[in-house]
Write a protein that binds this DNA or RNA. Structure first.
Lengths: 256, 256
DNA sequence: TCTGGTGGGAGAGCAGTGCTCTTGAATGAG
DNA sequence: CTCATTCAAGAGCACTGCTCTCCCACCAGA
């Protein structure tokens, strides 16, 4: 008997899919409200009016439930980032970069516990399975796509990019080669023959870590009492990093 | 009967202090080995050959034990950073900045679980008490001290600092005023009449978030398969951020 | 329509957790 | 020497993830 792999056939399977969704919904609610380590299978079961052991028919373990929530969150955040990039496709790259950065922060501020699950301390004894890797890179790919698009269309301000910065060392050059290969796989049409320079790739990587570092600092309380308007600070920081990568923020390089 | 506040008087108090230290040692071992959320009062008690309820004579709760571990870790890391800054006091500011960054990363890599306790996801239901605030800023103060010292001695390369970056907005300027006040309290002798400019302070803040963002990315597995030599990448990143802040890496501005 | 296999809920139970309360013993001050 | 204080020990509460057994409902093939 041949059947389509994802086709729901029987009423039983329909019910199963629905219960699975309800479990995920309840788990997401608890994760949002109390944080990952307070996510309890028993509490989820209680909320759904079933007994805890019944949950194990749907998720083999708490870790598997966590994995589902992680992938879901990565995809939600990744989609926000991609939408922000797409919505600004006709704008200068610097503004696009800032738009994506704002979108990422907005999601993080809206869902701090879920963001922490993705970019905070890894849950002990939990090894992120392979299935989380691809969704986990969507934001970075979206940001890199902006840089690559700008580079492809010759919009990178070479005079500004990496001005006064140290040269790229050999160890880092090897890392950047790996990054170039990963980008070639994710967005092959954006890679030109000349390819993005090492300095540009390094600036992109610095932009990532800066963005996530700043969001983490804000969310985890490291900037308490210092930065009042997190949004404004992030916009300026992202714009600064974009400028340092040679991304233009206006139709013409301003102040020239 | 007047006694010094921290003087250990009786044998009882001596024993008490010793048991307290042993508890902390065992707890630190478990934290290092298994991570914060796996830190169990009962396991600590078991390791010390006592019963769990006895621990409550020394720490009112698990949170209080965690607080002690947090302060201890902040101080250990802060001391490393300060030592790195002191050991390079006669070097150009850019090299000093990199030295402190390396010291912070080295400690983080040596004690990933403890680093996660400080800069990772906050433990749910745990509000960092006031006593952690001061130790929690030692690294940032050390880094800022390097910048302020350079500024004070006129070693900031004004032509390089903030070149091509967006101007400081009003919201961020307010944040930087708070930062300036905090620095004035922490290192009053380093503030000149002219004071560090907003652009310099902003670059310093960006340096912090970049540093901790990068370390977090490396430690929490976000760079797996990409960056091989974390140390080399961090050194270059820190040097780049230092250069962007106008800190010099050699006796003379190179490449001029 | 009957029947046998399967999917899945219910419950008990295991080993662990933080924390509280009571009990009994050691200690040190007056 | 007395007696209040200090502290360890143990039982117990309410919770956790997870396993195992039991049993019922469904659903397909005969």
């Amino acid at each position: 008997m041949l059947v389509g792999m994802t086709v729901i056939r029987t009423a039983r399977e329909r019910a199963r899919a629905e219960v699975r969704r309800e479990i995920l919904d309840a788990a997401r609610r608890q994760l949002t409200a109390e944080g990952a380590e307070a996510l309890s299978l028993r509490a989820v079961a209680r909320e759904l009016g079933m007994v805890s052991s019944a949950l194990y028919r749907y998720f083999a373990s708490r870790d598997e439930l966590l994995t589902a929530l992680i992938i879901e969150a990565y995809d939600e955040l990744g989609e926000r980032a991609e939408r922000a990039a797409a919505a600004t496709a006709d704008q200068p790259a610097g503004l696009r970069w800032v738009a994506v950065a704002r979108a990422v922060r907005a999601w993080a501020v809206d869902h701090p516990r879920r963001y922490a699950l993705l970019y905070g301390t890894p849950v002990v004894g939990y090894a992120a399975p392979q299935s989380t890797v691809v969704p986990g890179t969507r934001v970075q790919i979206a940001l890199a796509g902006i840089v690559l698009t700008a580079h492809r269309s010759g919009a990178i301000d070479a005079g500004r990019l990496g001005a006064g910065e140290p040269p790229v060392g050999s160890a880092v050059a090897a890392d950047l080669a790996r990054l170039r290969a990963a980008l070639a796989q994710a967005a092959p049409d954006l890679l030109t023959a000349a390819g993005p320079s090492d300095v540009l790739l390094r600036a992109t990587l610095l932009g990532w870590t800066q963005l996530f570092g700043l969001i983490g600092f804000e969310l985890f309380g490291q900037l308490r009492g210092l930065v009042e308007d997190g949004e404004a600070f992030l916009v300026e920081s992202a714009a600064t990093m974009a400028a340092r990568a040679g991304l233009q923020t206006g139709p013409l390089p301003p102040g020239r």
